[in-house]
Amino acid sequence: MDLLISVGLPLSLAIIMLSLGVGLEIADFRRVLTRGYPFAIGALCQVVLLPISAFATVKLFALPPEIAVGFMILSFCPGGVTSNILSKLAKGDVALSVSLTAVISLLSMLTVPLLAAWSIAHFMGADAPEVSITGLAIAMFLITTLPVAIGISIRHFATGFANRIESGLSKLATFLFVLVVLAALAANWQTFTENLGIMGGGLITLNIALLLIGLGIAKAANLSWDEAKTVSIETGIQNSTLGITLAALITGTESGFSPLALPSAVYGITMYVVAVPFLLWFRRKDVA
């Protein structure tokens, strides 16, 4: 188990982020300047409103400290490849989705360590593990920012090679994602079963609320329907593998998968249960 956590988990996330980077182009970042308003609305929902909603959910459901921290860690994670795929399936603005994922994934190296350290201190108090913000930032750079940058470079300088490996990387990333989620659940099975009711209810409630909040804010900001669908998905879908990895980095490998990882692991399953009805609704509204 220690080998899976210390080597397999960071490697899995790095491959997932590499697969994200291989699908990106320099134009995805340049688009932020040409379409600044829709991007700003999406970024506001994801970076600001998402953690606030998670904090409110934690208080509403009176979650145990470690589970509460896990909720907050999940809320700090960007969308990842999954949100891009769901935006495409919803017939949303895929270019906007990719731009949001790309920029916020790179910025997470700076935002996530600070917010995670605050959450741990706030909810766990004297029981909080010591968190090195600098160490966490370096780890975030190595397993998220650097692989994305390498992937983008491959796409830019060796487009043909990127096209050949993109499909295989995506399949490998999906397999690793499932493996990590199952391992985290198995390592915390008792805590999982004891808290499944309240944790599952909180996660599903938060997921639905975020999808609706993102959609509502986007429509209030007069974004197009395709843009609004994308902002909804980017607000409501997080990178659960990053959440599990952060939990392991914070608690250390000697303790195995921490209960801090449970919300992200359970969310890796429930987000699809919540997202599918929204996708069907979005597509049906397109036809209507």
Rank of each mutant, 00 (worst) to 15 (best):
A218T: 05
I104F: 14
L223R: 00
F157D: 03
M17A: 11
V148G: 09
M17D: 07
L86K: 02
M72Y: 07
I85N: 05
L176M: 13
P147Y: 07
V81Q: 15
G168I: 04
V7C: 13
A158S: 14
A247Q: 10
I138Y: 10
L206Q: 09
T245S: 03
I138S: 11
L182N: 11
S83A: 15
I143P: 07
L9P: 01
L179Y: 07
F175Y: 11
L18C: 09
T205V: 04
L212A: 04
T101Y: 03
L185N: 02
H122P: 08
G197K: 11
P147W: 05
I143Q: 06
V103K: 11
M1C: 10
D127M: 14
S97F: 13
L211E: 08
D2F: 15
D2H: 12
A149M: 14
L50S: 00
A95S: 07
L223I: 00
G201R: 03
V81F: 13
L106G: 06
V180C: 06
K59W: 11
V58Y: 03
A149E: 01
A121H: 14
E25V: 00
R30F: 05
T245N: 02
A68W: 04
I208S: 09
V7Q: 10
I133N: 09
I133Q: 13
Y37Q: 04
S97G: 15
Q190K: 14
V81M: 15
G268N: 13
I143A: 10
A275G: 07
M17T: 12
P277I: 15
I269G: 12
V7A: 14
P277M: 13
N188D: 08
S99A: 12
H122F: 14
I85T: 03
L33N: 01
